[in-house]
């Protein structure tokens, strides 16, 4: 299978103060290749630079050094979907749900009729039910999350970046949205890069779990997850899951000791 995301020797640092006299290194020498249609989770200690990693991948921040190719192109010129951590604050409260989801199409200058047709089509193909005529703040947080996901997918991005998107959700909603995103991923075959600080979630969703070290983030280890697909929540109680989990915790312990 062809590679969807290629990262080579990525470095990123931030100035310590406004004068830019000294820098802190956030990401150091990260290289990874991600196959098209793969679901990869990135796991690491809090504040290790995971969000910065996604921000650089999305083209929001320029890398200091290194190369990023998404579908063979620079992130600034590729279609990327990005679900941020604080997703309610990324929806546009003055737009109805349908106009929120259609926003990327509107930017492309597509007509309203076409946009709406696309949204309804997408909702049907993803099997999600959203009250299109309501405003986002009227929805539950799980439903808001679906609006954010639909908006990120409407323009068929080559890659979907997700930054701890389920943090703010209660357990029940979280389980629902986790399975929904797996379902959507199976249907769309979109490459997903998913940052998480929950070890169970990282294993449950992924084909591969990438472990980051403490800041500056380097890749400590990559773990293959060979649980069968489609996944379901009961798998989290299986022996295979537990052995992966123990392995992951062992890796994490070493990461923190370093």
């Amino acid at each position: 299978m062809e590679n969807s995301v290629i990262v080579r020797n990525l470095y990123k640092s931030f100035p310590k103060d406004i004068k830019k006299s000294s820098y802190v290194s956030i990401i150091e020498d990260v290289s990874i290749e991600i196959k098209s249609g793969e679901f990869v989770t990135f796991f690491g200690p809090n504040g290790c630079g995971k969000t910065t990693f996604l921000n650089v991948l999305s083209g929001l921040l320029p890398p200091d050094e290194g190369e990023i190719l998404i579908q063979g192109k620079n992130p600034g010129t590729t279609k990327i979907g990005y679900i941020f951590q604080n997703f309610p604050e990324t929806l546009f409260p003055w737009r109805k749900n349908i106009d929120n989801i259609a926003f990327p199409l509107e930017l492309k200058g597509m007509s309203k009729v076409e946009r709406y047709k696309n949204v309804i089509e997408l909702e049907r193909s993803l099997g999600i039910e959203i009250d299109n005529g309501l405003y986002p703040y009227k929805l539950s947080s799980g439903q808001q999350q679906l609006v954010a996901i639909a908006r990120a997918l409407i323009d068929q991005p080559y890659v979907l970046l997700m930054d701890e998107p389920f943090n703010a959700l209660d357990f029940q909603t979280r389980v629902f949205v986790e399975d929904k995103i797996l379902d959507i991923w199976e249907k769309t075959k979109t490459t997903i890069l998913f940052v998480s600080h929950d070890i169970d979630e990282s294993i449950y969703l992924a084909d591969r779990v990438v472990f980051f070290t403490k800041m500056p983030a380097k890749i400590a280890c990559i773990m293959e997850v060979n649980l069968p697909r489609p996944r379901h929540q009961q798998m989290m109680t299986s022996k295979e899951f537990f052995s992966l989990r123990s392995k992951a915790i062992e890796i994490f312990r070493k990461v923190m000791e370093r």
Binding site: F84, E89, T90
Partner: peptide, 23 residues
């Protein structure tokens, strides 16, 4: 304005004018 909304529009490759008028 919430920085997060502007960032979302940037990821969607909105130009400065669209970011201003639509966000």
């Amino acid at each position: 304005c919430k920085e997060s909304r502007i960032r979302v529009a940037k990821v969607m490759k909105a130009n400065k004018f669209s970011i201003f008028t639509k966000v």
